[in-house]
Design a protein around this nucleic acid. Structure first.
Length: 219
DNA sequence: ATCCCGAGGG
DNA sequence: CCCTCTGGAT
């Protein structure tokens, strides 16, 4: 997703590419419920107009809204980006903060966004649990699906810290490109031999819930 | 019609 | 736990 990772793991297709922590943070905020393609479409103009937290803090919310309209949730995102920029200026001396606790004080920045920024802008390992993890959990009948923090801790137990950022990126990529909810590309999936729903195709929430339930009954 | 590389609020 | 916010893709 980001330059350092693109270089280190060339087989993972990375589509957002920002070295600057602030621009990375804003891009990840924009990527919620939105494709990378769309984010990459709006960021050049956005950062040409407001390239750092100082400029973004002085922006009119309406102008940010216009620049990011096509990314969805644009009113909330625009407001959050302005406030978050103001907070970076007033609370963090103009620098994107480098800890989880500080990052999640920013509006629009939760655990997932914070961990992505920590991993890619600061090299601090973290497990990034997104909705793909949940979907994968469903496919495997894991019942922790509704608690991302539990999944985060469980994965952290299993994987060496040095691989957390790499694994997270690969999982996100896997969910996006292979294990998506509509027509999962099971033929291209390295986990197909392990997956109890291999070849079932479409997995909606109703089916998934039934599967988890029957799995519980079985135990 | 239904979901999406979330987050925040009730 | 539930709901809302948004446009776009399928």
């Amino acid at each position: 997703m980001y330059r350092t990772l693109t270089k280190r793991y060339p087989d993972v297709r990375c589509e957002l590419d920002f070295q600057d922590p602030f621009q990375l943070l804003v891009a990840v905020v924009l990527s919620a419920q939105c494709t990378d393609k769309r984010v990459n479409q709006v960021t050049p103009a956005l950062f040409r107009r407001f390239k750092n937290p100082k400029a973004m803090a002085g922006a009119k919310v309406l102008e940010i809204e216009e620049l990011i309209r096509s990314t969805g949730f644009f009113r909330i995102k625009a407001k959050n980006i302005k406030i978050l920029s103001e907070m970076i200026m007033s609370n963090f001396a103009g620098q994107v903060p480098g800890t989880l606790e500080e990052l999640i004080t920013l509006p629009g920045v939760g655990r997932k966004t914070a961990n992505v920024v920590l991993g890619h802008a600061f090299g601090i390992p973290g497990i990034t649990v997104d909705t793909h993890f949940g979907r994968l959990s469903r496919r495997f009948g894991w019942t922790e699906e509704n608690d991302p923090v539990k999944v985060e801790f469980a994965v952290a137990e299993l994987i060496p810290q040095s691989e957390w950022t790499n694994l997270s990126q690969r999982m996100i990529w896997h969910g996006r490109r292979i294990c998506h909810s509509r027509k999962p590309a099971c033929g291209a999936c390295p986990l197909s031999t392990l997956c109890p729903s291999y070849g079932m195709g479409e997995m909606d929430k109703v089916k998934a819930l039934a599967m988890v339930k029957s799995d519980e009954d079985f135990r």
